[in-house]
Nucleic acid binder design. Structure first.
Length: 492
RNA sequence: GGCGCGGUACCCAAGUGGUAAGGGAGAGGUCUGCAAAACCUUUAUGCGCCGGUUCGAUCCCGGCCCGCGCCUCCA
C-alpha cells in the first residue's frame, strides 16, 4: 500500500515512496530548545509521528532525521540572562522536550543531530556557496545568501518576489546587505556572544544553514521528504532549498509536508490570550497524555485543529471506549471457531482504516471503521456469538490501529507522575488539579483493599457501605465497574 | 494588498454529482441491589447565503457574508 501525501511543492496529492526503493529518507525540522514545548509544537511532531508510523506499518522502513537547534538568538539571550553557557541552558530544555515526546509516545527519529555539532558542515556549505558566487561577506563579518543567485526562489510557498522592491523594509542591523531579501548564512559575533572561530570568520550559524547541512550529511543532497510546521514553509524551507540546490546542483527534498497550526479554544494560541499551554500545563490539570495525543492527531494534519478542553474530554471518552472493548476481548474466554459475519467486519474495518490513512493521512476518517468494529464486536459478545478466531481477527485490527494511534495501552500514570515530579521541583504544585492530587494520594494497593472491602459488603448485602466506598473513590477520581467477571477499577 | 484554508446536527468531525461516516454529549429502553460498562432506539428532508450548470448539488461554476492562517527566524 502506497501512501498518497499532499506535496506542498507541487500542490497536489502524490504517492510517497522511497526513491531508492529501500527506505524513506525524511527530514523533519525539530525544536529550538529555548523553552518547554507547547501543544502547538507537539501537534507538528505528533503528525510527523503519524506519518512515520504509517510508513512503518505498511512496510516502508524510514530514515528519519530531526535536528535540535541549540543555538539561536533567543538561546543566547536567555542563557546570558541566566549566566550559564548555552550548552547548559539548552541541555535542560532538550531533556524536557524528549521527556514530553515520550509522554506523548512520539517515536524517536533515527538521527537527532545538533546544530552546534555541525559547524564544520555549515562552514563548508557557505564556502561552496561563496565559490558559486551565491554568498557574500559584509563588512561586519556576516555572510549572506544572494537571492538573485537562485531564480526559482519562492517555488515552495508560491511567492513571486519579482515585484518586491528592495529597501522597503531594511533592517537597520543589516544595512550592508546587497538586497533586503538576502538572508543570513552566518552571523558575525558581537562582543560577548557565543561564537565559533572558523575559516569564514568568528560568528555563529544562521538558522537555515543547519538544516541544509545536516540533511545533506545524514540523508544525502537529495532525499524523499521534508516536513515541518506551516510557518516554516516561508522563509525557512524556502531558504533551505535555495542554499542546498545552489550548492549541490540537484533537487533538495522531492516531497514537502506542512502541518497546519492549531487554534486553542477558537483563537490562535498566545500567551497574551491566556490560551497558551505546554504539555506539562495540561498534565497538571489532570488530562491524560493519551487524551492529548488523540485530540492532537484526530483532525487531519492539513486542517486547522481547534484544541479545546471539551475536545480533550471527548478524546478521553473515546479512548475509554476503546480500552474497555480491548479489555473485554483479552479477558473473556471464547469458544473455538470463527463466524463469517465478524470475520468480514474485521476485514472491512481493516481495509477502510488503511485506505483512510493512505489517503493523505486522514486520521479522522480512519477512526470511523475502528469504532464501527467496536460496536460490532461488543454486540457479538453480548449475544454470545464471538468465537476465538473472531477475537483474534479483531485484535489484529486494533493492533494496526494502535500501531499509528498508540492510545490503547493504559500507561498514562507515568507521564502524569513525571509531570508532578517536575511541578514539585519547579515549585508549581499549586497548579495541580485537586482531583489529580487526591487520586495520586491513593496507591493501587489501598484501592485494591477498598474494592475488596466493598465486595465483601456486597456479599452481606450491606449496600450502603458498598456505595459509600464507591462514592468515596469516585470523589478521588477512581471509577469502579462491576461485571460478571469481577470488579474493575480505573483512575479517571 | 499577495498567497492559501475553512464554514456539515448540541459540540468535535469525515465525506460524496444521486440524496449525509465516526466520536462526544443528551433523551428513552435492555441489563444491574443501585450504578458503571455494554447493547438497542433516538437527535441535520439538510451540509454559511444567493444565483447558475445538471434529470439530480452539500459536493461543480459565479457572486456575497463570516472565520482563520502565512507574507523574514512562532510548530
Amino acid at each position: 500500500m502506497t501512501l498518497r501525501l499532499f506535496n506542498t511543492l507541487s500542490g497536489q496529492i502524490e504517492p510517497l515512496a522511497p526513491a531508492d526503493g529501500q527506505s524513506l529518507r525524511m527530514y523533519a525540522c525539530g525544536p529550538t530548545v529555548y523553552d518547554f514545548g507547547h501543544i502547538g509544537n507537539f501537534r507538528t511532531f505528533l503528525e510527523v509521528d503519524v506519518l512515520r508510523r504509517f510508513l512503518l506499518l505498511t512496510g516502508t522502513p524510514v530514515r528519519h532525521v530531526m535536528n535540535i537547534t541549540d543555538v539561536d538568538d533567543k538561546i543566547i539571550r536567555n542563557a546570558a540572562a541566566a549566566g550559564i553557557p548555552i550548552g547548559e541552558y539548552t541541555a535542560k530544555f532538550e531533556a524536557a522536550f524528549f521527556e514530553d515526546l515520550d509522554s506523548l509516545k512520539v517515536q524517536r527519529p533515527e538521527v537527532v543531530p545538533h546544530a552546534t555539532a555541525h559547524i564544520d558542515q555549515m562552514i563548508e556549505l557557505v564556502q561552496k556557496l561563496a565559490a558559486a558566487g551565491a554568498a557574500y561577506k559584509t563588512e561586519d563579518g556576516s555572510w549572506y545568501f544572494r537571492l538573485a543567485a537562485f531564480p526559482s526562489y519562492g517555488k515552495l510557498s508560491k511567492k513571486d518576489l519579482s515585484g518586491m522592491e528592495d529597501g522597503a523594509r531594511v533592517d537597520v542591523d543589516e544595512y550592508e546587505k546587497d538586497s533586503a531579501r538576502d538572508f543570513a548564512l552566518w552571523k558575525a559575533a558581537k562582543p560577548g556572544e557565543t561564537a565559533w572561530d572558523t575559516a569564514i570568520g568568528r560568528g555563529r550559524p544562521g538558522w537555515h544553514l543547519e538544516c541544509s547541512a545536516m540533511a545533506a550529511k545524514y540523508l544525502g543532497e537529495s532525499f524523499d521528504l521534508h516536513a515541518g510546521g506551516e510557518d516554516l514553509m516561508f522563509p525557512h524551507h524556502e531558504n533551505e532549498i535555495a542554499q542546498s540546490e545552489t550548492a549541490n546542483h540537484k533537487p533538495f527534498a522531492r516531497h514537502w509536508m506542512h502541518v497546519r497550526f492549531l487554534l486553542v479554544e477558537g483563537r490562535k494560541m498566545s500567551k497574551s490570550e491566556g490560551n497558551f499551554f505546554t504539555l506539562r500545563d495540561l498534565l497538571l490539570k489532570g488530562y491524560r497524555a493519551s487524551s492529548i495525543r488523540l485530540a492532537l492527531i484526530s483532525v487531519p494534519y492539513r486542517h486547522q485543529l481547534n484544541f479545546t478542553f471539551d475536545g480533550l474530554a471527548e478524546a478521553t471518552s473515546a479512548i475509554d471506549r476503546l480500552r474497555t472493548f480491548h479489555d473485554r476481548l483479552t479477558k473473556t474466554s471464547f469458544a473455538p471457531g470463527e463466524s463469517p459475519a465478524l470475520q468480514e467486519a474485521a476485514k472491512k474495518a481493516r481495509e477502510e482504516y488503511f485506505n483512510a490513512l493512505a489517503n493523505d493521512l486522514n486520521t479522522a476518517e480512519a477512526r470511523a471503521p475502528i469504532f464501527d468494529l467496536v460496536r460490532a464486536g461488543n454486540t457479538a459478545i453480548d449475544q454470545g456469538q464471538m468465537l476465538a478466531a473472531d477475537r483474534d481477527a479483531i485484535l489484529a485490527v486494533l493492533s494496526d490501529f494502535d500501531a499509528v494511534f498508540d492510545v490503547l495501552k493504559d500507561d498514562d500514570a507515568e507521564p502524569t507522575r513525571k509531570a508532578l515530579v517536575w511541578a514539585e521541583e519547579a515549585g508549581r504544585l499549586d497548579e495541580v488539579a485537586p482531583e489529580l492530587r487526591a487520586s495520586q494520594s491513593l496507591t493501587d494497593e489501598s484501592i485494591d483493599a477498598l474494592v475488596a472491602e466493598r465486595t465483601a459488603a456486597k456479599k452481606t448485602r450491606d449496600f450502603a457501605r458498598a456505595d459509600q466506598i464507591r462514592n468515596d473513590l469516585a470523589a478521588k477520581g477512581v471509577v469502579i465497574e462491576d461485571s460478571k467477571d469481577g470488579v474493575r477499577w480505573k483512575r479517571k
